[in-house]
Structure formats: C-alpha cells, structure tokens
Amino acid sequence: MPYIKDKRPETMLLEGEWNVGAYKYKAPHLLEEFVQGLKEKKLIGSMCIGCGKVIIPPRNICGRCHQRMEGRITVSNWGTVVCFVTSPPVEKGKFQVFGIDPVESGLIQEGSVLIPTFVRFDGADANIVTELCNVDPKDVFIGMRVKAIWAEEPQGQLSDLVGVEPI
C-alpha cells in the first residue's frame, strides 16, 4: 500500500475544550427508597414479577421481561464474595478523583491495599460493588462469606454501607 509517509513533520497545535460540566442529569426516584432503607440498615432491592430476579440497588426496569420491577424486597446483610480485585499499596500522587488526591486529603491511608469486591448478598441476584475491609489481602478468596459493615449512625445516604468484612 502506497500511502505511508516516511517523514513526519509536526502540525500546528490548537487548544480547544469540551465543556462537560454543564450537563443536568436526572436522578431516579428509586435511589431515594434505597437510601431510606440504608438508614434502617436494610438493603432494599427490586424484584421483577416476571422472572423473580432481585436486583440491588433497585432498578426499575427488567430488560429480560421488558416490564417494570414492581416488587420490593429486603435482602440479607450477609453475602458471598463473587469477585475481588486487590490494588497495589496506594501511593501519594498516583491518581486523582475529581482533582483530589485521596491520599493527600486523608481519605485513604498511604500504603493501604484496597480490595473492591463484588458481593452477592443472600437473596439478591445482582452483585454490589463495595470495599472488603478488616482482612489480610492474602486471605481473600472467591466464595468467602462476608457481612455488611454499617456506619455508626446511618444518615440515609449511600456511604452508610461502609463495606463488608469476613464473618
């Protein structure tokens, strides 16, 4: 094929931007129900009347049956590790979340190992992603039994579910 340039002189560089801060996204009402449940240390999922699947956090449409998920079900606080990932020890200046360095701002301790985990709480058909705490990373395995850790005083917000720990 004939058209590969051998020489590669650079072209002029122009600055531009895609302003993405101005979007107005809509929140679903279901999230309200979910966080109200968290306030009472309950995990509320939605159940599809068609196929019986329980999805947590609740979603309002079952794509398999193509209908609204009308049922509400509280699932257990106990569950199973379905999958997990271990991070290398967290270092300062390695990554940022919305422009904030989580180590510098004290959110995460330097040198700690994060274990985001897919947990399937008993009674649910969907996994929730949360952090696995109070465990040596070497001891984690798929199929490990865990239970939810709750905030001391749940406020009715997503961070009320702090994570899970081994039973």
């Binding site: 809509k26 929140a27 679903p28 309002n60 449409i61 193509h66 209908q67 609204r68």
Partner: peptide, 14 residues
C-alpha cells in the same frame, strides 16, 4: 420531562 432517560425510552419502546 421529569423522568430519567431510561424511563422515557422504556415507555415509548413498550
């Protein structure tokens, strides 16, 4: 519309 996109799309498709 005061609805999420998901709801809006689901309703017309259905």
């Amino acid at each position: 519309m005061q609805k999420t996109r998901e709801d809006m799309v689901f309703e017309v498709a259905k």
